[in-house]
């Protein structure tokens, strides 16, 4: 009835508005889906670029040689491409990082979740977040200009570029990751279990060791695996402080190159597009991507599969 009071113009306008509204309701989800699909496109893009150029690389360098040769000299007269020195450097720097990050990260998590009073926790956790928020380039500078000179006092024949110092600093960088994920896992163990064990006369330490850690083990292990993945993918610290020696060695006082550092060195130099050296970037990148992806999937699997639900 109300419509009868409106003029024809107004009625038409109202109808148009309604139609626009209906159109919006249909168009918006589509637009939003397109935006959401960009993230999927990113993944597809990453995989395609890596696979395509890696394929180009393996047309020129045999697959077998790439994964078994310990000789890497991409810019030599007779260039050879063996990825083993890079994998070796990556694994060794990550191992050193884990030796720092796992003990300190786990004990911090235990302290924060089981021992600390609320006041201490409110003080320590933001500081951990600050530690996590510092850009990796700053850690790289710190490793090169502070940690390496200090380590030289202890180990006199340490090179100016070595794998030990960035390994340690990388470990420090990863501590917050291990600490916060492990702490999440431990604090989600229900209080009733804690109190039950305490009531039976166990000390806090015994409760932690025999009740809390077994109950939270899936989360703790997952945090370790994620930490390894983080260490493998870390770039700037090792690029700055570990140098670019492509020797296959196990001596941690010497310079080693990781996969990430190789990519940075090669792109910031002049690798002409289309050369074997240029394609080797993508082969190394693909290997790196594969390593971290596997690690992340393992972490997801562990935390899903072995979760104890209370």
């Amino acid at each position: 009835m109300a419509n009868n009071n409106l003029g024809v113009k107004e009625q038409i306008q109202q109808n148009l508005q309604k139609r626009n509204k209906r159109l919006m309701e249909k168009a918006v989800p589509l637009l939003l889906f397109t935006a959401a699909f960009i993230s999927v496109l990113t993944t597809i893009g990453i995989v395609l670029t890596l696979v395509f150029d890696t394929f180009q690389f393996f047309r020129k360098v045999p697959f077998w040689e790439f994964f078994t040769s310990t000789d890497l000299s991409p810019l030599g007269k007779d260039p050879s491409f063996g990825i083993l020195p890079l994998i070796n450097g990556t694994i060794i720097s990550s191992l050193i990082a884990m030796c720092v990050a796992i003990p300190i990260g786990l004990t911090s998590a235990i302290y924060l979740s089981e021992y600390a009073t609320d006041r201490v926790r409110k003080l320590v956790k933001p500081m951990m977040e600050v530690l996590a928020g510092i850009p990796t380039i700053v850690y790289g500078f710190f490793a090169y200009s502070f940690v390496t000179p200090i380590l030289t006092y202890i180990i006199p024949d340490l090179g100016a570029k070595n794998v030990l110092s960035p390994g340690i600093v990388m470990g420090i960088m990863i501590i917050p990751l291990v600490a916060s994920l492990s702490e999440d896992a431990m604090s989600s163990v229900p209080n009733s279990m804690r109190e039950g064990a305490l009531a039976l006369g166990a000390t806090r330490f015994e409760v932690t060791l025999k009740v809390i850690i077994p109950a939270a083990i899936s989360g703790i292990i997952a945090s370790f695996v994620l930490a390894v993945s983080r260490a493998i993918g870390e770039t700037m610290i090792v690029t700055i402080a570990s140098g670019s020696s492509k020797n296959f060695t196990f001596d941690i006082t010497e310079s080693m190159q990781t996969m990430t550092a190789y990519i940075v060195e090669f792109t910031s130099g002049d690798a002409g597009s289309g050369t074997v050296g240029y394609y080797s970037l993508y082969a190394v990148g693909f290997t790196l991507f594969f390593f971290t992806l596997i690690m992340n999937l393992i972490a997801q699997y562990i935390s899903r599969k072995f979760r104890e639900a209370y």
Binding site: I46, T49, L50, G233, T235, T260, V264, L288, T292, L293
Partner: peptide, 11 residues
């Protein structure tokens, strides 16, 4: 979120 940042550089 878990892909290393260098890989984004290559992309």
């Amino acid at each position: 979120a878990g892909v290393p940042s260098v890989i984004f550089g290559l992309l």
